[in-house]
Amino acid sequence: MVWEVGEVTFRPEHELHNRRFSRNLGVGLSLSVFIALIFALTVVKITKEGKMKYNADEAVQVEVQ
């Protein structure tokens, strides 16, 4: 079955298109999860290092006093 709207023709979706869509969706979701994980890791690492540096600075200040 073919729908015609003005000059644009819509063809019914082939099974191949569904498979391509599922593949693109899978890749897209995987990349999104990867990016979110990198972001979360970065936040955790920076926060941890920041805390360690703060503690080290405090220890130095106590020693100086």
Binding site: R23, L25, G26, V27
Partner: peptide, 10 residues
């Protein structure tokens, strides 16, 4: 046959 996402997961 063009592979789907599941085929790569397999």
């Amino acid at each position: 046959r063009e592979a789907g996402f599941g085929d790569y997961v397999q």
